[in-house]
Amino acid sequence: MKGQLGELEDAVMTRVWRLDRPVTVREVMVELRRERTIAYTTVMTVMDKVHRKGLLRRELDGRAYRYTAVATRADYAAALMDEAWSHGGRRADTLVAFLGRMTADQRTAFDEALRILGTRAEPPGTPP
Rank of each mutant, 00 (worst) to 15 (best):
residue 102 M to R: 01
residue 82 D to I: 12
residue 52 R to P: 07
residue 7 E to Q: 11
residue 27 E to R: 12
residue 41 T to S: 15
residue 68 T to I: 03
residue 39 A to C: 04
residue 11 A to Y: 05
residue 107 R to A: 00
residue 125 G to P: 06
residue 27 E to D: 07
residue 121 A to T: 12
residue 34 R to E: 15
residue 6 G to D: 07
residue 5 L to C: 05
residue 79 A to P: 01
residue 81 M to Y: 07
residue 124 P to V: 05
residue 32 L to Q: 05
residue 30 V to D: 14
residue 80 L to Q: 14
residue 96 V to C: 02
residue 82 D to L: 13
residue 73 R to E: 14
residue 21 R to A: 06
residue 50 V to L: 08
residue 38 I to N: 06
residue 52 R to F: 05
residue 28 V to Y: 02
residue 20 D to N: 15
residue 128 P to Y: 08
residue 81 M to F: 09
residue 76 Y to F: 13
residue 1 M to D: 08
residue 94 T to M: 11
residue 85 W to D: 07
residue 7 E to N: 07
residue 35 E to N: 08
residue 28 V to S: 03
residue 117 L to W: 09
residue 2 K to T: 07
residue 24 T to L: 06
residue 51 H to C: 13
residue 56 L to R: 03
residue 10 D to L: 13
residue 51 H to I: 06
residue 119 T to H: 10
residue 22 P to S: 06
residue 55 L to Y: 11
residue 69 A to M: 01
residue 114 L to I: 15
residue 84 A to P: 04
residue 45 T to K: 15
residue 13 M to E: 04
residue 42 T to Y: 04
residue 64 A to S: 14
residue 45 T to N: 14
residue 30 V to K: 15
residue 87 H to F: 01
residue 104 A to G: 02
residue 126 T to P: 06
residue 67 Y to T: 09
residue 86 S to P: 12
residue 120 R to G: 11
residue 66 R to K: 13
residue 104 A to T: 00
residue 126 T to A: 06
residue 23 V to K: 11
residue 80 L to G: 12
residue 103 T to G: 01
residue 52 R to Q: 14
residue 118 G to H: 00
residue 82 D to N: 05
residue 8 L to A: 03
residue 103 T to F: 01
residue 56 L to V: 08
residue 69 A to R: 01
residue 50 V to A: 05
residue 2 K to C: 00
residue 84 A to T: 07
residue 90 R to D: 15
residue 30 V to A: 06
residue 38 I to K: 02
residue 63 R to N: 14
residue 95 L to Y: 03
residue 109 A to L: 11
residue 73 R to P: 08
residue 36 R to H: 00
residue 109 A to I: 01
residue 80 L to M: 13
residue 3 G to D: 12
residue 10 D to V: 07
residue 34 R to N: 14
residue 82 D to Q: 10
residue 63 R to L: 12
residue 15 R to G: 00
residue 41 T to D: 12
residue 53 K to Y: 02
residue 124 P to A: 14
residue 108 T to E: 05
residue 20 D to R: 13
